[in-house]
């Protein structure tokens, strides 16, 4: 690990100014990924700006009936928050599906969004990787890639985004709030992460110097139920092979609101717009769920060893949609 300087500002403006003054600086919150990457030699910031002293840890209802989650709110606190559990169960479940209790006690909302791929080549500083060292190549494409992307990958990168939380946020139409030298802006979570294209070094649309201040969720659609389900190699404490977050309303046997997102399949949480098109207004039947999943996954381009993710994602989606529909049909 490279030596670095450390500051702990108490005001958000000060943190942003500090960042602007030191090229290569990084904000530090829970540190569960950044410190890990610094130990691996993947990250080597000259300055860490500790944002744990900033007033960014609140979880509170918005005037519009939604929920604002501060950037430094801990994953465990968000998962256990009564409003999250009651109104956004998919988010609570996604958080609880990730990592371990110890990690969730440290990991933050903003940090979780910004966590980086667990691709083994990215994590090994002695090997090529276009994400870590642009232009050095992508050994994963022909190498060990069972866990990597089937959707939206490029010749330059086949990494997946590892977050569970972000998948639920994508399905919940959450927005990321950013603050930088140029002021504030919001970006939908589903557009916050990028596809790799020819710039896999950029995971997200965040600009240099911008700080995530929080995430805002709109009020859930009336009568909606949500859920998150994850498949993994062991029963707990493992990254997703594939996962799905879904939010659904059903009335008189027909689907009303439908939001679906996949995890573990792509460089970003994959909001399944094509599937949603099929779902909306369609009868709440297994046949509909299958058609929806197939519509989305038709774009999949599996690599040599990860083709299983396509039927896995399909099965997960069908299963979760079926369970939700059977619990949400207002006609009973």
């Amino acid at each position: 690990m490279k030596p670095f300087a450390y500051v702990r500002p108490e005001r958000t403006e000060e943190a942003i100014d500090r960042f602007a003054a030191q090229p290569g600086a990084r904000f530090l919150a829970g540190g569960t990924n950044l410190v890990d990457l610094m130990k691996l030699g993947v990250a080597g910031p000259p300055l860490l700006i500790d944002i744990n002293g900033l007033p960014l840890d609140a979880v509170e209802e918005t005037a519009a009936g939604g929920l604002h989650i501060g950037a430094t709110a801990r994953n465990s606190d968000v998962a256990a928050h009564p409003l999250v559990r009651v109104r956004y169960p998919a988010l609570s479940q996604a958080l609880l599906a990730g990592a371990s209790p110890q990690l969730r006690n440290a990991a933050t909302t903003g940090g979780n969004l910004l966590q980086r791929t667990r691709c083994p080549y990215f994590q090994d500083a002695s090997k090529p990787c276009n994400k870590r060292a642009p232009g050095s190549g992508c050994p994963a494409r022909e190498g060990v890639h069972r866990d990597l992307a089937v959707l939206g990958h490029s010749a330059h990168c086949v990494a997946t985004h590892p977050s569970d939380m972000a998948v639920a946020l994508a399905a919940l139409d959450a927005e990321v709030r950013l603050r930088g030298p140029a002021g504030e802006r919001t970006v939908p979570v589903a557009e916050f992460h990028r596809l790799p294209g020819d710039r896999p070094d950029r995971d997200t649309v965040i600009e240099d110097g911008e700080l995530i201040t929080g995430v805002t969720l709109p009020a859930p659609p009336s009568g909606a139920r949500g859920a998150y389900r994850k498949a993994r190699d062991r029963a707990s404490y493992a990254f997703a092979l594939a996962s799905v977050a879904a939010v659904l309303t059903v009335e008189d046997g027909r689907i009303g609101h439908a939001a679906l997102a996949f995890g573990g399949l792509a460089h970003k949480p994959w909001r399944a717009h094509a599937a949603e098109e099929v779902l909306r207004g369609a009868p709440a039947t297994a046949e509909t769920y299958r058609r929806a999943a197939d519509a989305e996954l038709a774009a999949a381009e599996p690599l040599r060893d990860n083709g299983f993710k396509v039927p896995l994602a399909r099965n997960l989606a069908v299963s979760v949609l079926h369970d939700l529909a059977s619990r949400t049909d207002t006609t009973g």
Binding site: G31, T32, V35, D36, L48, S100, Q102, L103, N105
Partner: peptide, 23 residues
């Protein structure tokens, strides 16, 4: 040393954390 085993778990202000990932 990477938050993957829990052997370093301590209570920080009463909450369990992986002390290997906390500076």
């Amino acid at each position: 040393d990477h938050g993957q085993c829990g052997a370093c778990t301590v209570l920080l202000d009463g909450r369990r954390v992986n002390s290997c990932l906390l500076l």
